[in-house]
Design a protein around this nucleic acid. Structure first.
Lengths: 249, 249
DNA sequence: AAGTGGTCTAGACCACTCG
DNA sequence: GAGTGGTCTAGACCACTTG
């Protein structure tokens, strides 16, 4: 069952094993799984290792624990796809649409004040500005305008093929992996240029997004302004109660 | 420093201590904190206990760890308030506004099809429907329409004082604590009734929200339809990469 | 080679729930 | 009182980073 010679940690193997069991229906929603002691005995691992696996599944919302009672399978639909850090390409692929894009402009310039602030840059620092029309199955979905400080990827103008994914290029060519993005969304109505590019009526509802993306150490790498069609896009979130607190109930 | 007689767990005391240190500036953004061994030695606790505290702070985004190097303070602004499960009252208070509301209707009825589905009810089951105009500092902000199955709180019509918080009543009177809410937001333009209630022009941008809230065991307890003013409300999110995976780097 | 975090063990005591 | 999860210990070995 468990492979102790594998490079995959035991707790992760246990996690996957339990996930398989749950998906196969061995434990239905609301039902208790085996106790920590049982699992550790049957699998021949220490209870702490089992707990590490269970804790992770609890934080993912697959299980929940009740002191003195047991650990139970959540009833929430697991298949629902909530948003993580996703590029437009990834998000559309996940939804089953074919993403593409048209470059409107791609240049080196100075960002506006908000961009400079968000990227924590000095006033003179420059950024790549990539403005694209984003399409899903050939239908215009959004206008996206990315700002990336030049020092992260000095030769981006040459190395980036606009037909490919920007995030992929950043990851593969420069080792830039985004860990967190902060996002603000506003409801607005389409202005003249927006309605022309998105092929919707002037005054149609749209989302305005401002996103700032950070590396794991908290350094900002990208600042994005975008406009999404309100009739073909929706924001799906999952909100939870705070974590990191001592359990009280 | 640590109180071993306290009911507060040691790992939580350590967590708070580190948070205090970080906020006081003892460790700046990007700087390494003490090593796990150092902390455990200085505080007289085992390393596993220190790790439990650090893991929690890492998952909150306050710290990040690098194998072989150390544990570092993230550079992200800590003061920014991202959304957890929050009621309108809580959210507005957090933003510094005084929340209030006017009840438009409060009755027992059958929900529409979407509500029945979201709440996983049988077609004949009934819900409380509470429709309210929500105000911040006396200014209309949103129209909210809550649906709650009657069996959760049979005498809500008597026990709920519309001048108070619905969530507080649910928690205190019935022990109902929401753990997760799923939310979908669309951009739209105000219809006649909405613009009248919210005192905005017809055709002004608004958000349409559909929210379903769940208990810890995954049972749905509340289904809410709401319309927020687009000119006075914005959605702020923090998106992260997936969790629960074995570290690869 | 020395130091770091990642994983794991084999115990322990506690608070809690339930019959 | 028996069983559960929550907390904690004092070690251990490993992979990784850095000088």
């Amino acid at each position: 069952m468990l492979d102790r010679r594998s490079v995959v940690p035991l707790y992760y193997q246990i996690q996957q094993f339990l996930l398989d069991q749950i998906h196969s229906g061995a434990f239905g929603p609301g039902e208790a799984i085996l106790s920590e002691k049982e699992i550790s005995a049957r699998m021949g691992v220490s209870r702490m290792t089992v707990r590490q696996a269970l804790k992770s599944l609890c934080s993912q919302g697959v299980l929940y624990s009740q002191r003195g009672k047991g650990t139970f399978v959540s009833a929430t639909k697991l298949e629902k796809n909530f948003r993580n850090v996703l590029s437009f390409s990834e998000e559309m692929s996940k939804l089953g649409s074919r993403p593409s894009s048209k470059v409107i402009c791609f240049e080196v310039a100075q960002p506006d004040i908000k961009g400079t602030e968000a990227l924590k840059m000095k006033a003179a620092d420059q950024v790549f500005i990539l403005r694209r029309l984003r399409l899903a199955d050939g239908i215009p979905m959004a206008i996206e305008c990315s700002h990336i400080p030049v020092h992260f990827c000095p030769d981006l103008l040459e190395s980036f093929d606009p037909a490919t994914s920007l995030y992929e290029t950043l990851a593969k060519q420069y080792g830039i992996h985004i860990a967190v993005t902060e996002e603000e969304a506003e409801a607005a109505v389409a202005k003249a240029e927006e309605s022309r590019l998105l092929k919707i009526g002037k005054g149609s509802p749209v989302f305005h997004f401002v996103r700032t993306s950070y590396l794991r150490d908290g350094k900002p790498v990208e600042y994005v302004n975008s406009t999404y069609r309100g009739d073909r896009y929706r924001i799906v979130n999952r909100l939870t109660t705070e974590t990191g607190k001592a359990v009280s109930r």
